[in-house]
């Protein structure tokens, strides 16, 4: 039983570095996609949706990937603290931003948005 356990542990030591690096890379690509969404979408409220990709899945993937390749428990606890901070503060900041824009009278675009209007107003 102990041998099987140490076997799994050995495999895990080999596997965790490529897996963590791959998750970091995937999260970075998701951040890039969120940025592209921020550049493409037509108004402030839709841009908030694109920015929240970066804040949730991109940050979570990068942080979990860094947890996998981290050398010790101290680093994991710090990464966990960053994860909790980001997951608590990013919706609050998004809501504050949306509420401020709504209070200041920025009207959202309602209804179907096609390519033609977006190219005209956003390029």
């Amino acid at each position: 039983m102990a041998e099987v356990f140490s076997d799994i542990l050995g495999y895990w030591e080999i596997v965790r570095f490529p897996l963590g690096a791959l998750m970091c890379f995937g999260g970075a690509i998701l951040c890039l996609i969120g940025t592209v969404g921020v550049l493409r979408f037509p108004d402030i409220y839709t841009r908030l949706h694109a920015a929240s990709i970066t804040d949730t899945s991109g940050a979570a993937l990068v942080l979990i990937g860094m947890m996998l390749i981290s050398p010790g428990w101290l680093v994991i606890s710090k990464l966990f603290a960053i994860c909790v901070f980001i997951f608590l503060t990013s919706p609050t900041a998004s809501h504050a931003l949306a509420n401020a824009a709504h209070t200041a009278g920025v009207q959202p675009i309602i209804g179907r948005v096609g390519t033609s209007e977006a190219d005209g107003g956003d390029a």
Partner: peptide, 20 residues
């Protein structure tokens, strides 16, 4: 929800319908 928003971001032609 992430999957659907990512699809909206990388789709070649913009196809969204915002609503309040």
């Amino acid at each position: 929800a992430n999957i659907s928003v990512i699809r909206a971001c990388v789709k070649a032609d913009l196809d969204i319908a915002p609503a309040l």
